[in-house]
């Protein structure tokens, strides 16, 4: 990685972190009801977003994400203000029109499939987009992520089974974001292994476990796994060990916890290596904070959804359709 790329990643990590801080503040300040998000996953999620082949349709990557993927979305070019809109559940929320929690993205022109609160179901859906991509050829792949606790759901096994059928292997990058927790339950009390990705081995699926708090390790692992999936048209299972810096969600308070902070580490490294000055770093943080403060003022002035629209889109092709 050259310095320019490192600085770009750093900027996006700061933007993502500031966005999550802002979302938590919005809940505490009455501008939203519930927060769940990805502070602590930026070192992995920003590289992922930069490496995605972005676009619409099977020749581009399909993204089946969980609710901690904000940094990936920002790295792909999403506007932070849109996440504030979703937090405030305004009519202008471009992802769900005020219908879903913040960090529950859906963006057709980037193949970002609707994020849902139901844990792990995306592993079951991801096989379908990958199946079409296998048939269509090309270099588009399917990327799916989820948490360590949710990997106990049948959906994760489904993903392993269906992506490794003999002769019908699927181009799918199966990610496990291991933050070592499911709400209040520690992984080590439920899983006998520390590397959940090793389960893929039984299916003949290549797999690896990496330090997801390390930007360079994440970049290298994602790049090489993607390269394999893109060109061999076969699955790869990658586990990234990450932090959960503000606990599970606002339901557990959302306060900062004492875990490794990938952004602090990365920023310190850039400063030590002379690639970034302390002043410039501070300016980057302040730039993003100020931008978000301004965004919040805009969003506060935007309307909530019209209650008359509750029936819209129950069915496609007809805005309103009763039964």
């Amino acid at each position: 990685m050259d310095a320019a790329l490192e600085l770009r990643i750093h900027g996006l990590m700061v933007q993502a972190r500031v966005l999550e801080d802002q979302l938590i503040a919005m809940v505490h300040g009455g501008d939203g009801y519930f927060w769940i998000g990805g502070p602590g996953e930026e070192a992995f999620n920003v590289p992922l977003g930069l490496l995605v082949q972005k676009g619409e349709g099977p020749s581009f990557d399909y993204l089946h994400f969980s609710y901690r993927s904000s940094a990936t979305l920002l790295a792909m070019g999403a506007a932070p203000i849109d996440t504030l809109r979703q937090m405030r559940a305004t009519a202008t929320d471009p992802y769900t029109g005020g219908r879903n929690f913040a960090n529950h993205y859906a963006r057709r022109e980037w193949n970002v499939l609707p994020v849902t609160s139901a844990v792990a179901v995306q592993y079951s859906q991801s096989i379908g987009t990958a199946h079409v991509q296998k048939r269509e050829g090309g270099t588009g792949i399917t990327i799916v992520n989820g948490g360590d606790a949710g990997a106990a759901e049948g959906d994760f096994a489904t993903c392993l089974v269906w992506s490794s059928r003999p002769g019908a292997e699927l181009p799918i990058l199966i990610l496990v974001m291991n933050n070592h927790w499911g709400i209040s339950t520690e992984s080590r009390t439920q899983w006998p292994m520390t590397d959940i990705s090793s389960r893929a081995g039984a299916f003949g699926i290549r797999h690896a476990r990496i330090d997801g708090n390390d930007v360079a390790a994440s970049w290298a692992a994602i790049e090489s796994a993607m390269d394999y999936v893109r060109h061999e048209r076969r699955p790869f299972c990658l586990q990234a060990d990450v932090s959960r810096l503000h606990g599970h969600s606002s339901s557990t308070g959302g306060a900062l916890v004492d875990e490794r902070d990938c952004l602090k580490e990365f920023e310190a490294k850039l400063i030590t290596e002379g690639k970034l000055s302390r002043e410039d770093a501070a300016a980057i943080w302040e730039k993003h904070r100020a931008a978000l403060r301004a965004d919040l003022e805009i969003v506060r002035g935007e309307p909530l959804p019209d209650p008359a629209t509750i029936h819209d889109y129950t069915f496609w092709g007809r805005k309103e359709q009763g039964t």
Binding site: G57, P58, Y62, L113, V121, Y123, S124, Q125, S126, I127, G128, T129, A130, H131, V132, Q133, T142, G154, D155, T158, V161, W162, R165
Partner: peptide
């Protein structure tokens, strides 16, 4: 398909996502 109803519905959904 494999004997997996969740997978069957998930597969159909994923296929439908692509059109």
């Amino acid at each position: 398909s494999p004997l997996d109803e969740r997978g069957i519905v998930g597969m159909a959904t994923g296929i439908a996502f692509t059109g």
